[in-house]
Design a protein around this nucleic acid. Structure first.
Lengths: 209, 209
DNA sequence: ATACTAATGCAACTTGAGTCGCATTAAGGA
DNA sequence: TCCTTAATGCGACTCAAGTTGCATTAGTAT
C-alpha cells in the first residue's frame, strides 16, 4: 500500500541534475504509459522500465501509481490556464464547453484526464489533488460570470461556480457515468442550457452579494 | 486477473437450495462490506469470510470484486423503479433530483452507489453494467417529459434524456469530480436550472419528432 | 433409497505489487 | 581535487490476490 508513503517531494536539498532528469524521465514515461494503456494498465514497473529509472526509486519518490498521477496533475495545474474570452457570456460558455470536449477527445490528453478521475476513486491523495485542480480551474473561470455581470448580461449575485458546473457537468456525466460518446453538439447544448438557466436567475446566490 | 473469468451465471442447471443460499449470503456480505469499508476496502476474502462461503467459490462464480459489484447492481436494477409523479414538470424534476441526493446521502446505499461508479473505472464489465443501469433509469424517466408535453408545459420534441441529464449531472459532478458536499439546495438548484433550460427550448431535438 | 453429478470446500501453488538493507553513483561544497 | 552524503541501483524479501487439482457435500432424478 502506498497511502502513508512519501508525497512527491521535489523541493529537496539536492535538486541538481540527476534528480531533475529522473523526475522528467518518470513524468514523460507516466504520460506515455497512460496514453498507451490507460489508467488500468499503469504500473510502477511499466513506468520504471520505460523511463530507465529503477522500480525502487519510483516507489521511494512517488509512492506508487497514485503518486505518479498526482505529480502529472500538479504539473497540469501549473499551465497558467485562462478561461476563454469571446466578448459575450453565451460565447464564453460555449467556448468553455468546447474546450472540455476537446480535452477529452484528444487521445493522449483525454486518457490522462480520465486517468486522474479514475485515480481519484482509488487514492485519497489523487482525490484531493483533483479537487484542488478543479477548485483552481473554477476560481479562474469565475471571471466569465463577473464580466457578464459588468456588461449587464447577468444579474448581480449570480453564483459563478454553479454556472460553470452547469456548463461542464453534463459532459462529465456522459463521459464517466453513462459512458455515451461526446460530440460538439452535446457540449453546445450544455452551454446553452446553463446560459438559459443563468439568464432566468436560477443561479442567484441566496443573500445579495 | 478476472477479466476473462466467468460472468455471474445464475441460470444454471441446478438452481436449488444451496446455490441460492450461497448467492444470497454473498450478496448480503458484499453490500455490508461496501457499507463498512467502501469500494477500496472491498476484497473477495472479506466477502468470503463474512458470508461463510469459501474464497474459491466466490472467485469461480463472481470472478472477482468487479463481479460482486456487477451482481449487486443487477439486483438493484430489478427493483421496478418508477420516476416521481407530482403532477407538474418542475415538481417532477425537483423530486428526481431530491431522490438522487437522498440515495447518495444514505450511508449504506450511498456507499454502494459510489462503489459502482468506482468499479466502472476498474472493470469493463462494471462499466457496461453501470451503462445499462442508467440507460434503463433514463428510459423510465422519459415519462416525466412526455407527461409535461401532454400537459402543454413543454414544447413537443423535447429531448427527455437531455433533460434528465441536466437534472442529475451537477449532482454527480459534485459527488465524484469536485467532491463537494451535497445538500438539498444544490439538488433543487440543479432541477430548477434544467426546468428553465427546457422551458426555453434548449433541449429541442434537431428534427421534429 | 440409491446413484449421479453440479456446486462447494480445501490446500498448495503462481504471480505481481510493494518493502527493506546495503552497495554504488554523482551533486555540491571545502 | 577531494570529501561528504543525497539519490539511485540492486537483489532479496514479504504479502495479498488470484488459480488449479482434487476431495467432499448436497441437489436431483430414477
Amino acid at each position: 500500500m502506498s497511502s502513508p508513503a512519501t508525497q512527491p517531494d521535489f523541493g529537496s536539498a539536492r535538486p541538481g541534475g540527476r534528480t531533475a532528469r529522473t523526475r522528467a524521465a518518470v513524468r514523460d514515461a507516466t504520460l506515455a504509459e497512460l496514453a498507451a494503456h490507460g489508467y488500468r494498465g499503469l504500473t510502477v514497473d511499466g513506468v520504471a522500465e520505460r523511463s530507465g529509472v529503477h522500480r525502487t526509486t519510483v516507489y521511494r519518490r512517488w509512492g506508487g501509481v497514485d503518486g505518479l498521477v498526482v505529480d502529472a496533475l500538479d504539473l497540469a495545474g501549473e499551465d497558467g490556464w485562462q478561461p476563454p474570452d469571446t466578448g459575450g457570456f453565451a460565447g464564453d460558455c460555449r467556448a468553455l464547453a468546447a474546450e472540455v470536449h476537446r480535452s477529452f477527445a484528444d487521445p493522449a490528453q483525454g486518457a490522462a484526464s480520465a486517468a486522474v478521475v479514475a485515480a481519484s476513486f482509488q487514492s485519497p491523495r489523487a482525490a484531493e489533488a483533483l479537487r484542488g485542480f478543479y477548485a483552481d480551474r473554477n476560481a479562474r473561470s469565475e471571471v466569465i460570470v463577473s464580466r457578464a455581470v459588468d456588461r449587464g448580461e447577468l444579474p448581480a449575485g449570480t453564483d459563478a461556480a454553479a454556472v460553470v458546473r452547469a456548463v461542464v457537468a453534463p459532459l462529465f456525466h456522459r463521459l464517466f457515468i453513462t459512458r455515451e460518446p461526446l460530440d460538439a453538439g452535446v457540449a453546445e447544448q450544455a452551454a446553452e442550457a446553463a446560459v438559459a438557466a443563468a439568464l432566468a436567475g436560477v443561479f442567484q446566490l441566496p443573500s445579495g452579494a
